[in-house]
Amino acid sequence: MKTHKRVGSICALLLTALGAPPADAQSSTAAVLFSRTQYTQDNRIDSISIFRTDPQGLRTIRLTPRISGYQFKLGGWSPQGTGIVYELVRNDRPAGQSQLYVMDRQGGGVRQVTHGQGSHSMPVWGPGGIAYAEGRCLALVRGDGENQHVLFCPPDDHLLRRPQWTTDGTSLLIQAGHRGGPQGPIYQTLWRVNASTGQATRLFRLEDEQHTQQPKFSFSPTREEGMLWGGGWPALRVTFSNGYFWSYNSEGYGFKYAPGGNRVAFGGYLVLPDGTGFSNLYVSDRREGSDTHQLSRNYSNPDIHWVPVQWSRDAQYVLAIRRTLNAQRSLPPVKQELRIVEVATGRQTRLPDGEAIEGAWFQP
């Protein structure tokens, strides 16, 4: 396990209490979507189901059934929080085939919105419709299933991550790339694509011959900069206007920008003198990685792995996953616990067990 040193004292060890939920939990429409995965005895995915809960974790309903061979992969909320998009993968269909569906908040009104051969994956519902990956290309479809069309196909590349809408709903940011042969370099490009015309502007190009895995990008709310991390790379902050990047002072993974863009949440490792690393949840200033605060208090379990998912709209809370990894890392995690963590105090509100993705927390 690769670890990164973090300055800090553990002399005052405090147990993190499960505290009160955030204020917006009182809203009747605020909700968190999450999924649960069931595995076969030989650790293959048997089924995935989608659930909805409130930010207090008190009222949870199942939105999709548990059916062996059916994977209901969560996409996210419609902009007004009235609909949910997901990808359905069925084991009784040819490999590489999937379609997108939408449903209401109660799991009803299900309708298929994509058609055709191949995969339709990684959906994100934004102001201009549902953006998704159709094969290696970026595509769009309306929430009612109309006007399904391919918007842009990156030259020589394929989409690596879910597309991201710009705040004004006029463009999409995508991360695309490929590997130049089995031992060749990694190529990765960030594009801004006009949602109306499909015209694409290249923001950043990376060629890497030293690392074996694709790095990941997290985009700022303004979509004018991002954080590059993972794949053996150090954390880097990138400005898209000029392609300039520099090392971030705080090493970590899973970087998520706060709504105002001034802070980031991330997972990182606290390394003890004996070399043992423990994953924790952190928040720091986004400019240089300074003023870092540790939110969780994991000093004893090397199998715990914290992953930030999404900030609250007021930037006072972070939705995160507290995974308990299998001792044999290639096997599925033992447990995935959803927590809403208060940034000022570290207090945690425990939600039902499951996995969430960015955009899963709807906040009116």
Rank of each mutant, 00 (worst) to 15 (best):
H115C: 00
S78L: 08
G83P: 02
L203T: 04
A17Y: 05
G96A: 07
L295N: 04
L88Q: 13
I186V: 15
V85H: 05
V32I: 15
G116N: 08
Y132C: 10
E146H: 10
E355H: 02
L159M: 15
E224F: 01
S241C: 04
F255T: 00
G129T: 09
D291Q: 14
G252N: 01
P259G: 11
G198S: 12
F72Y: 15
A17T: 13
G108L: 13
Q363G: 06
G289R: 07
G177D: 11
V32C: 08
Q213H: 14
M227V: 06
A315V: 04
D46L: 10
V193L: 10
Y132N: 09
I61F: 06
G252E: 00
L338H: 06
T349Y: 06
L203W: 03
Y317L: 05
A30R: 13
L190M: 12
I340V: 15
L159K: 10
S284G: 08
G198Y: 09
G346A: 11
H211E: 13
R62Y: 03
G107L: 09
A139E: 08
I67A: 05
I84P: 02
N301Y: 04
R161K: 13
V113W: 06
Y317M: 07
N194V: 10
S171T: 12
P185Q: 14
V307D: 00
I48G: 00
G275S: 09
P163Y: 07
G108V: 06
A258S: 15
Q363D: 15
Q188Y: 01
P163T: 11
V343Y: 02
V341G: 04
A356R: 05
G346C: 11
T40I: 08
I67L: 12
Q148F: 03
E251K: 08
K216N: 03
E337D: 11
Q210D: 14
R142Q: 15
L138A: 12
V264S: 01
H158I: 06
Y39I: 05
L325I: 05
Q348W: 03
G180K: 14
L140I: 14
A176K: 09
A176G: 11
S98P: 07
S220E: 08
L151F: 09
S284Y: 01
S290C: 00
G226P: 02
L236T: 01
G231R: 10
G96Q: 08
H120P: 02
G118E: 12
N242H: 12
N147G: 02
E146Y: 02
P273W: 07
L206P: 00
L160Y: 08
L190C: 04
H178E: 10
N326G: 10
K256M: 05
P215F: 02
S279G: 06
F245Q: 13
R192Y: 01
P185D: 14
P79A: 10
P332Y: 09
H4R: 09
G359I: 03
R286D: 02
H158Y: 14
G126S: 09
P273H: 05
W311A: 01
T3V: 13
